[in-house]
Simulated assay, not measured.
Amino acid sequence: MSSIEKTLARVNERVILGQYYEAHQAVRTVVSRYLRQKAYGSAIGLLYNSCILLVRKGQTGSIADLLSMMIEVYKAADVAVDSVSKGRIAQILWQINGSDQALKQVVQPVISWSAKHGAEKSGDPELHHIFGSLFSHAGLAEDAEKHFLLGTRDSAAALAEMHARWHAKDSNNATLYISRGILGYLSVQNIRNARVYTERALQDLIETLDEPVTTEHDIFVFEDEYLLNFLQMLIPACQIKEGIIYRQLADHYKVKSIEGWSAALQTIEGESFGIYPQRGFNLMDLMGGAFR
C-alpha cells in the first residue's frame, strides 16, 4: 500500500467516525509535507480523493478549503488546463449545491488558475459553464449569468432558458431579458454564442405570443418588441464589423437613449466597429435592474 493509500485509509476512518475536522487537518498536514518535497502529483492525488470522501458527507466548508489548496498546487506545479485537471475540479464542483457559500469561495481560485494556465484569458469556458449551471439551479441568476456569458455553446442555450423562466414571471419585459444575453455575448465578441442564445431565446418567446411573427431575411420581425429586430441585426453587423450598418441601425432604432444599454453598446462600438476608443466593460452593467 502506497503512502497516499495509507493516508486516505486513515482519512476515511475519521470520516466514517464523523471526525471531519480531524480528517481535514490530517490531509492539510500531509499535503504540506508533500509540497516541501515538491511531490506535487502526490499532493494533488491526496487532495482530490479527500474531497471526494468529504463531499459525500456534505462537508462543503472542508471541501472548499481543500479544493482551493489543490488549485494552489496546480499553480505551483504549472499544471495546464486539460481534460484531466478540469475533470478533477468538475467532479468535486458538481457535488456542491449552488446556494452553498462554499461554491462562491472556490470560484475565484478556479477561474484564476484556468485563465493563467489555459487558452482563455477570461477563464476556461467549461468551468464557467459548471459554475453557471450550479448557480442557475440554485436561483442565483446574476451569478449564473456572469458565468454563462463566458461559457460554452451549451451555456448560451442554458442562459436563454434561464431568461425565459424570468420572463415568464415578468411578461412585459421580454426585450430587457433577451438584450442581456445578446449584448452580453457581443460585448465579449462571442458571435457564435450570441447566435445560439438568440435562436433559443426567440423561439421560447414566440411560443408565448398570441399573434404570429413574420420572418424577413432570416430575421424574426416583431412589432411590439421592435428592439428585438435591432438586436438580431446587430449580430451580423458585429460579425462583419461594418460600422456604417451599425450607425444606420442605431440611428433608426434610437438605441443610444435606452436605459441600461449604454455601457454594452460603447464596448461593442469600440471592439467591433472602432467607433470609440476601447473602454473596459463590466458585465455587472448589464445586470443592474432585472434580478434585484
Rank of each mutant, 00 (worst) to 15 (best):
Q189H: 08
Y226W: 08
A144Y: 13
E5L: 13
T267Q: 10
S114H: 00
F148R: 05
S85Y: 02
L67S: 13
L227P: 01
R153E: 15
E242I: 04
Y226E: 08
F230S: 04
V30N: 07
D82W: 09
P277D: 15
Q108T: 13
I178V: 03
L227R: 14
G289N: 10
Q59A: 06
L35K: 12
L150K: 15
E242R: 14
L67R: 06
A80Y: 03
I71M: 13
S171I: 10
F222T: 02
D124W: 05
V30C: 03
K241M: 14
C238P: 07
V81G: 01
G87A: 10
L140K: 06
N12T: 12
I244H: 10
V79I: 08
I275S: 02
D224E: 15
Y197H: 09
Y21E: 14
H128D: 02
L183Y: 08
A168Q: 14
F281Q: 06
T60G: 08
I63Q: 09
D170K: 08
W94H: 06
H137W: 07
L176V: 03
A264Q: 02
S136Y: 09
Q37L: 15
A194D: 00
T60Q: 14
A263L: 09
D285H: 13
L17Y: 09
R180K: 07
V255N: 04
S187F: 01
V27K: 02
A164Y: 07
V81E: 00
Q203R: 13
V11Q: 01
V221E: 13
Q232A: 02
S133G: 12
M162W: 03
M69E: 15
D251R: 14
G184R: 03
W166N: 10
I63W: 04
S171A: 12
V73G: 04
I245R: 09
K256M: 05
Q248L: 08
I182G: 05
S122L: 12
Y20D: 06
S99P: 03
I44A: 06
